[in-house]
Design a binder for these strands. Structure first.
Length: 409
RNA sequence: GUGGAUGUAGUUCAGUCGGUAGAGCGACAGUUUGUGGCACUGUAUGUCGCGGGUUCGAGCCCCGUCAUCCACCCCA
């Protein structure tokens, strides 16, 4: 038997229903914020991710499904969604138009990692990317949109925000931080010493207690943002305050991808184990430029579908559709005419084998329809069917032509 | 990539000291030849993850391997 690949899952029945419900809800809300759908390829040139996500990140460094295709191109299965959307934005030369563009997308992402709870090799994200708006109002709108999606899905969360600064204030801060870390490097853990070189900001959210105690006195970027970053961050917090969206400023919040600047945010769930980030996003004003577009401010987010799958409160399933069955062989084929007619407007489940009444009703229970329609010998002779409304329990025997009307009531 | 746990029926799991495999749930059938969900009765189902080793004999012990789960790293 061939099993799915490691870290890849099939979704069926209740699970796939949850998946669809999440996507449908997200789409509906994204549209209300003016977003339209963008579909981009799963396979992209490797260079795209190296330039956008950043070579220093683990994603690009060791987690990509990267290979040479038959034409000899170095290609990659997308490990995240933003890079492809930005590439598409630039490819279509939308960066040369003065109009603001807003896109939503959803689909499979691939990362070659060791699977664990909430982390798969093939997983799905729903995301939004907004291009051309530099005002912090857009950052706020996106955060409220994620909040609205989670509220609608019945998911509780904690929102964390931070500012990562910009090319004006970040490099200066980084220098300061490295200097600070160098002084205490001997007492920092092995991982932190490695991070000092690869991504010094990451040291700040080390889970090691000794490291954390040493970091209490570390310089904080939030205290030395440039004027523009500082104003925007304060504006964001005041907007969140007045919208009554609860948040926590987490000065250690670092996004894993190199392209973020200014606003960074993460939605956390405490109910799903170690992989607790259920959505993440932020501003990436320089990425379009990195990918050969005209400088265009942008901000976006992504939701991890698998991570919220178990958290979603599903609407109660209601009776839907019609069950059709025959109790004698001769009647089976007469069902097709009825089914075809009813399928103009209704969901119809058609049982092909003749069975006893009881067997049929067991089948009815399984699919939970509004109506059960059965034909036996008597009905067949009279051109009638037995029909039962499973909601009211009312049942009757009617002519085939009268079915449609019976169902309306 | 590192560490730990676990692989037995469709599923959840039991399986003693090593002696040829068991339960609940689910499925199917019947009790009721046309009134379901409940109840009762019955039936079916296994490469005990895979490969090797020890043994008269392995689901159980040993080695390897694959997979799953959890955590680290990292991320949605």
């Amino acid at each position: 038997m061939i099993q799915p690949l490691r870290g890849m899952k099939d979704l069926t029945f209740e699970q796939s229903e949850r998946f669809v419900h999440i996507i449908k809800t997200s789409i509906e809300i994204a549209k209300r914020y003016g977003y339209s759908y963008i579909e981009t390829p799963i396979l992209e040139e490797t260079a795209l991710f190296k330039r956008s996500v950043g070579e220093s990140s683990d994603i690009v460094g060791k987690e990509m499904y990267q290979f040479e295709d038959k034409g000899g191109s170095d290609v990659c299965m997308r490990p995240e969604g933003t890079a492809g959307v930005v590439r598409a934005f630039v490819s279509a030369k939308l960066d040369r138009q003065p109009i603001k563009q807003k896109f939503y997308y959803y689909g499979a992402m691939f990362r070659y990692e060791r699977p664990q709870k909430g982390r798969l090799r093939s997983f799905h994200q729903f995301g939004c990317e907004s291009f051309g708006e530099s005002l912090v109002y857009e950052d706020f709108s996106l955060i409220s949109m994620v909040a609205q999606i989670f509220d609608t899905l019945g998911i509780s969360y904690e929102l964390q925000i931070n500012s990562l600064g910009c090319p004006e204030c970040m490099p200066y801060y980084k220098k300061q931080l490295i200097e600070f870390l160098t002084h205490i490097s001997e007492d920092l853990c092995e991982d932190c010493n490695r991070r000092m070189v690869t991504n010094p900001i990451r040291v700040l959210d080390c889970k090691n207690e000794t490291c954390q105690s040493l970091l209490v006195t570390s310089p904080k970027l939030i205290n030395q943002l440039c004027e523009s970053c500082d104003t925007d961050f304060k504006k964001l917090t005041s907007l969140l305050d007045s919208a009554k969206i609860a948040y926590k400023v987490n000065t250690n919040l670092v996004r894993g991808l190199d392209y973020y600047s200014k606003t960074a945010f993460e939605f956390i769930s405490t109910e799903i184990g170690a992989q607790s980030a259920i959505a993440g996003g932020g501003r990436y004003d320089r990425l379009v430029e990195f990918l050969d577009g005209k400088p265009t401010p942008a901000v976006g987010f992504a939701i991890g579908i698998e991570r919220i799958m178990e958290l979603v409160k599903m609407p109660e399933s209601q009776k839907i559709g019609i069950y059709l069955g025959a109790m004698c062989k001769e009647a089976i084929e007469s069902l097709f005419f009825i089914a075809t007619t009813l399928r103009q407007n209704h969901k119809v489940t058609l049982e092909y084998s003749a069975k006893g009444f009881k067997s049929h009703m067991k089948g009815v229970d399984k699919i939970n329809p509004c109506f059960a329609i059965l034909i036996g010998e008597d009905e067949l002779q009279n051109g009638k069917v037995w029909i039962k409304n499973l909601e009211t329990q009312e049942e009757s025997t009617v002519l085939i032509e009268e079915i449609e009307e019976k169902i309306k009531n």
